[in-house]
């Protein structure tokens, strides 16, 4: 997949591109409105990560431009402003999602993949990982063709790990993904352990290999060893 990161904060865009690159992904980068404008005119991207406040212009104008020239790139707005109005405006202008800074890279990647899945719907709603098969639309999990019953949260967690496969996901990121920011349970990071244990058990009971790996109490990784 090919992504464009329109973000003036160099540190942030570097980390994002580092996280996204690899596994067949390519990242392009624009630090200003002008650069973004040029790159959007010249190339096609699967998804554009768009910061709203750029040193020489408004990110929303880029979004308008993109729609004007009839490009079908997916757009994920990344903004420091948690404003409902801006969110609504962005989404009504044709953005696919809106992510508020600060965010976890794993969350960002999950959102990007969700956008891409939606955009190229044909067959892509089903994700395969070895013997695992996940239907993101029907929210069904199958191991070797056999359905595994997961709760809604367990399913979300599994999907989160699978789309971020081979990456270490911090407990903080996992908790936030499942319970959102307003859970205000910052002291309950360790709690994610129980949750992952449940998913693990259900999967291994159905004959799935255990792909979850713990990383010294800081996070987990879903990978084929």
């Amino acid at each position: 997949m090919k992504f464009l990161i329109v973000e003036d904060e160099e540190g942030l865009s570097k980390s994002i591109s580092l996280y996204l690159t690899g596994e067949g992904n390519i990242c392009d980068h624009a630090a200003t409105y002008e650069q973004g404008y040029q790159k959007l005119s010249l190339y096609d991207y699967d998804c554009v990560l768009l910061d709203l406040t750029l040193p020489d212009g408004e990110g929303l104008q880029l979004l308008k431009y993109l729609k004007k020239i009839n490009k079908t790139d997916g757009v994920l707005i990344i903004s420091a402003r948690n404003s409902l109005d801006q969110k609504i405006e962005g989404l009504s202008l044709g953005a696919d999602d809106y992510l508020i800074k600060p965010f976890h890279l794993s969350e960002l990647y999950a959102r990007i993949q969700s956008i891409v899945r939606r955009r190229h719907f044909n067959g892509n709603s089903i994700i395969h990982f070895n013997e695992l098969e996940i239907d993101t639309t029907a929210k069904e999990t199958k191991v070797n063709g056999k359905t595994v019953h997961l709760t809604r949260k367990e399913f979300d967690l599994l999907l989160y790990f699978i789309v971020n496969k081979n990456k270490v996901i911090s407990k903080a990121a996992a908790v936030e993904h499942i319970w959102g920011d307003d859970a205000d349970m910052a002291d309950s990071f360790d709690f994610i352990y129980t949750h992952i244990k449940n998913v693990r058990k259900k999967l291994t009971d159905s004959g799935c290999k255990d792909y979850f790996q713990s990383v010294y109490g800081v996070g987990y990784k879903f990978a084929d060893v």
Partner: peptide
Amino acid sequence: AVINSKLDTLLQ
């Protein structure tokens, strides 16, 4: 956001 992303990068 930068700190967070750097932590995530470090974690990898």
